[in-house]
Design a protein around this nucleic acid. Structure first.
Lengths: 205, 205
DNA sequence: CACTATTGTGAGCAATTATTCAACTCTTTG
DNA sequence: CAAAGAGTTGAATAATTGCTCACAATAGTG
């Protein structure tokens, strides 16, 4: 039952353009502030200040702090970013290219603002509702990949389900790290090695 | 220059046994509280309460909240946990076993209290000093592995340095996830697939 | 223009939290 | 055993923060 969490619903729906504008200013500011300070230190007053609106206005459109980050997360998911790893090739001899597409996709999706994504993934106070949405999304992705691994003729792994989980998580996390850590390998090298690792794993002995 | 951070030094050094005992009670309680509530919600009062000492005593031995988590982290590192991946085999045909040892080590080191480790890794406010210590430790580990990869006859990868980084991070992160997430694969399956992935990667085509 | 609905304001309340300190009890020592 | 030192206490303080509300400003409407 999708009984929308009251704690995350806005208290006022925008009717005029300037209201919608204010709402967007808040979200933009929040994205910057959360990315810069993290969730706990990203205070509502700081967000309002950065959005150049008063704290009161902020609470017109978001009932509480959690709802702001929740909204950012939902928009991120809805935007399709974080998924989009479909349209994958099944022809023999194309495994490496398929894997490369997967890795590229991850890199692209994270280049936007990795710090914000980190906050969303690791610090967000997830309501049951939100947790479900994310979980559902993840399950769709792994299901897609599991399907691909099952069908692809070049794939030879012990446990397909575990492999799908392992690969998605590994690609995601390593991409995170690549974005956050400047002192590591250049993107091309990183991509090549990661693709190698996954491809060789899938091909089996 | 190791100009020890004043903000992390205790204000009183224990001289009697009961004092040392109190200090330990604080750390034990803090470990539990941080693991259960996270860093922000793991308040000093809660720690004192759990340790069954007064809040004043807590501040006798730790100048501030940060210092408590910092101390826990240092002890964790000093304990050798988090490293210990040495003593690895160089004989041909032993690559899989070597990798398995690496993975087992990671699993063992994280089975203690994964939630606390998560807090330490992801929420700890790292002083410059602490950040250095961790960085140094990481560099030692990657150097060890890089050395191994270079010497081992069965290893065939493009960029050994990147490979070492990639492997350590991947093993670490996947182990984290395994501990945190109950709804995933059983340990044996997970271990087998992870070992497969790394081994096949290193063996090359 | 006048009236209403919508939007914006920001001082301040209430709750939480890290931290202090003066007074106390317990241990050691001469 | 008495004085000094070590250790403990917890109410009080100061700072921060999420959030409210009474009011002001702006936009839509006849």
């Amino acid at each position: 039952m999708p009984s929308a969490d009251r704690r995350l619903q806005p208290r006022r729906e925008p009717r005029q353009v300037r209201a919608e504008l204010t709402r967007e200013r808040i979200l933009t500011a929040a994205a910057h502030v959360f990315a810069e300070y993290g969730y706990a230190a990203g205070t509502t007053n700081r967000i309002a200040e950065r959005a150049r609106i008063s704290i009161g206005s902020l609470y017109q459109y978001f009932p509480n702090k959690d709802a702001i980050l929740a909204r950012l997360l939902v928009e991120h998911i809805d935007r399709g970013t974080w998924t989009e790893a479909a349209d994958l090739d099944l022809a023999p001899g194309t495994l490496r290219e398929t894997v490369r597409a997967l890795v590229r996709d991850a890199i692209d999706n994270h280049s936007e603002d990795p710090r914000l994504l980190r906050v969303m993934v690791e610090e967000a106070p997830l309501s049951a509702e939100l947790r479900d949405a994310i979980g559902r999304h993840g399950r769709i992705r792994t299901a897609q990949l599991r399907d691909l691994l099952t069908r692809h003729p070049d794939v030879r792994v012990g446990d397909v389900a575990t492999a799908a989980d392992l690969i998605l998580f590994t690609v995601e996390m390593n991409t995170h790290k690549l974005m956050a850590d400047p002192g590591s390998a250049p993107v091309e090298t990183f991509e090549r090695e990661l693709v190698d690792m996954v491809t060789r794993y899938l091909r089996g002995d």
